[in-house]
Simulated scan of single mutants.
Amino acid sequence: MSELKRLAYSIIDFLREQTKSQAWTSDERESLEVAMQCLENVFKISSQDIDLAVSPSLTEIFSAAITKELIWNTPSDFTPSAQDVIRAEQLKNEGNNYIKEENYRAAIDSYTQAIELDPNNAVYFCNRAAAQSKLNNYTAAIEDCKRAIAIDPDYSKAYGRMGLALTSLNKHSEAITYYKKAVELDPENGTFKSNLKLAEQKIGEASSPTGAGLGFDLASLLNNPSFVSMAASLMQNPQLQQLISGMMSNAISGPAAGVGGLTDMGSLIQAGQQFAQQMQEENPELIEQLRNQIRSRSFSGSNEDHS
């Protein structure tokens, strides 16, 4: 019970410090005071029980944590030894080899060890960002790109990889900003230019009433065994068979028959819409997976080099 009292006293002390801040509204300050009273009543303690105070206080602990976070997010004055620099480069090269082998978790581990030895090398953060993206850890990739940019604001590859991570999260507007910066820093880089153009196209498609749903890559679909299996199953649907049979009959009859043959776009659109709807109902998870795969393939970067 004594430990609980110490904890309660620490919390009350912390809340008391918070009430001194001018940032709180009167209602918020009143809520803090009610919380303190409740703790005092439950544990039968007051501000006079100084013997329950612990050191450091919660306020000091939080302040230290915030300071540590600020230090982590800005380049440090730490200077690694010559031996650490050599070892960090070795670890980076190991990570690059793991990337080539598509062993991305091992690559992340190697880059992380390199960062621990030399935390002011932007390349290590940028390369780890690439590995994180390969594992779909886009938020972590973005954080690593931010660190790389903080260390080296002129590192074009960090902006390019930031754009790729943002694109994968469908944050195309933000991605465009970083792609433009990457192109500005490295105007001869064709990958940056291509990704910028694709991101701008995505924005255009999103704002166009006819742009939605036109990004599928037929080759990617036909190479997916799950899609082929599902499509074969759906083709057994009598209504869909009837639509396709009618279209084939029109194609054989030709325009002279007055039906329009292959130019009967109404039938084609109707069949396509029904087929897409049934696919969505049959396996929505697969369709979403396909969308994500195709979306990611639309952007360059799979064959990019690592520093």
Rank of each mutant, 00 (worst) to 15 (best):
S2G: 01
K5N: 07
K5F: 04
R6I: 10
L7C: 09
S10K: 06
I11D: 11
I12V: 14
T19V: 07
K20S: 01
Q22V: 02
T25F: 04
E28C: 02
R29Y: 02
E30L: 12
L32M: 08
L32Q: 06
V34Q: 13
A35E: 12
C38I: 15
E40G: 12
V42Y: 15
K44P: 07
K44F: 10
K44N: 15
S47D: 14
Q48L: 09
D49N: 08
I50C: 02
D51H: 12
L52C: 07
A53V: 00
V54L: 09
S55A: 12
L58E: 05
E60F: 01
T67Y: 04
K68C: 08
K68I: 08
E69N: 13
E69V: 13
L70M: 13
L70G: 06
N73S: 07
P75N: 06
T79D: 14
D84S: 14
I86C: 03
R87Q: 10
R87H: 03
A88P: 00
K92I: 01
G95T: 01
G95V: 00
Y98G: 01
I99C: 11
K100S: 03
E101H: 04
E102P: 01
N103D: 14
A107V: 02
I115F: 13
L117N: 02
D118I: 08
N121A: 06
V123K: 07
Y124C: 02
A130K: 13
K134S: 13
Y138M: 10
T139C: 06
A141G: 10
I142L: 09
D144E: 03
K146D: 14
A148P: 04
A150W: 06
P153C: 04
P153R: 05
A158R: 06
L164G: 13
L164W: 08
A165C: 09
T167V: 15
K171D: 06
K171E: 06
S173C: 10
E174S: 05
E174G: 03
I176N: 08
K180H: 00
L185I: 02
T191A: 12
K197D: 04
K202V: 04
E205Y: 15
E205V: 06
S208W: 11
G213W: 09
L214P: 05
F216N: 11
F216K: 04
D217S: 08
A219G: 05
L222M: 11
N224H: 15
F227Y: 12
S233F: 03
L234D: 03
P238T: 03
Q239H: 07
Q239P: 07
Q241H: 05
I244S: 11
S245V: 01
G246I: 05
M247T: 01
N250Y: 10
A251N: 06
G254I: 07
A256D: 12
A256Y: 09
G258D: 14
V259N: 12
T263Q: 09
G266Y: 02
G266E: 10
G266A: 07
G266F: 05
S267Q: 04
I269N: 03
I269E: 03
Q270K: 02
A271Q: 00
Q273L: 08
Q273N: 13
F275W: 10
Q278A: 05
Q278E: 10
M279W: 12
Q280W: 10
E282F: 13
E282T: 15
N283A: 07
E285I: 09
I287K: 15
E288D: 13
Q293W: 05
I294M: 07
S296T: 12
S298G: 13
G301D: 12
S302P: 12
D305P: 03
S307F: 10
